[in-house]
């Protein structure tokens, strides 16, 4: 009899425990839902005032309360594009070095170093970017680009260091460790039989990597690029420090520009008018929707890849 009683109290305590853990898990879903609802409600004023045109008009006049997000969106897209342009090839090369070329002992140290790049807080990238890297760009890199390509188009205007190009390069170094980590794993997942058959045909190390390993793991590499993209697009502090904060769309990568995150960081606490504030929150909503879609795509994609490659 006592035995049964004991079991029933145990069952009850376990039910309570399980319910509490479900609440913990449920809070995660709740936060996600509340995030969407709150951002949509709070950007209502702006949604009503500007509608769809908000995304494509380029005015930013807090005094007359006319807002269009085109310059911020453009800045986010271009700086992210520059970041990916540098980060993806660099990550593939680093992963190639770590997996195929380097002695495993050395590879361990180098990958620790690369991973530490991810641990450096973004505000530190901002400080370094503003006070060290931007002057370096202005002194050496930008004049060099000007002398090679001439004073036209992408490289027009005075080399002041801050601007789209600098922001993009710093972003590249920030997302580099995330992409490298995934690409390295993808490289390591390729069965050695496949590689050995390429070596057996007389391929060089790079030919094997380029024609066999990368082709075999291309889906994983695309997934990695998506993850990096999601990071880069929402990065705030580093970009805010170096992008220059000008609501302008200019062809030159040397000109001061803006991004969604930089606009938010700079203007949010100064916005006193309800419409101004609501506009900024709508900017946040735009960014959230974009990163959300990227994340969903990356997750579904990587899940599919894992299935097709056989989860290990």
């Amino acid at each position: 009899m006592t035995f049964f009683q004991e079991t029933s109290t145990q069952n009850r305590s376990d039910t309570v425990f399980k319910s509490i853990t479900i609440i913990g898990a449920g809070i995660i879903l709740l936060i996600m839902g509340a995030l969407f609802v709150q951002l949509i409600i709070s950007s209502g004023l702006s949604l009503k005032a500007f509608g769809f045109n908000f995304l494509i008009t380029n005015v930013w006049d807090p005094i007359r309360e006319q807002f269009g997000a085109a310059s911020s969106i453009y800045g986010t897209l271009v700086s992210t594009f520059i970041a990916m342009l540098f980060a993806v090839p660099l990550s593939i090369l680093i992963a190639f070095f770590l997996v195929e070329l380097s002695h495993p002992g050395i590879a361990k140290w180098i990958s620790t170093g690369i991973e530490l790049l991810a641990a450096v807080p973004s505000i530190i990238y901002g400080m370094w970017g503003l006070f060290v890297f931007a002057p370096f760009m202005a002194e050496y890199i930008q004049p060099f680009l000007k002398s090679v390509f001439g004073n036209i188009g992408l490289f027009e205007g005075p080399p002041i260091g801050i601007g789209m190009l600098t922001a993009g390069i710093i972003l590249a170094f920030m997302v580099l460790p995330f992409i490298t980590a995934v690409v390295r794993d993808v490289f390591a997942m390729v069965p050695s039989v496949v590689k050995e058959s390429a070596y057996g045909m007389g391929s060089t190390t790079w030919e094997t990597a380029h024609k066999v390993t990368i082709r075999y793991g291309i889906q994983g590499i695309i997934g990695a690029a998506f993850l990096g993209l999601g990071r880069a697009i929402g990065e705030t502090m580093a970009v805010t420090f170096v992008i220059g904060n000008a609501h302008r769309i200019s062809a030159s990568l040397f000109a001061p520009a803006n991004s969604i995150t930089a606009t938010l960081a700079n203007e949010f606490t100064e916005a006193s008018e309800p419409l101004y504030l609501s506009t900024l929150i709508e900017l946040g909503l735009v960014l959230f929707v974009v990163t959300f879609l990227i994340q969903v795509a990356a997750q579904l994609w990587l899940r599919r890849v894992k299935k097709s490659m056989g989860a290990q």
Partner: peptide, 22 residues
């Protein structure tokens, strides 16, 4: 939960700031 947990992990920190502000 797993799916949205991963998405929450990748949500830009400034969005979290705006969310808690509202």
């Amino acid at each position: 939960v797993r799916f949205f947990n991963n998405i929450l992990m990748g949500t830009p920190s400034i969005i979290i700031g705006v969310f808690i502000y509202t």
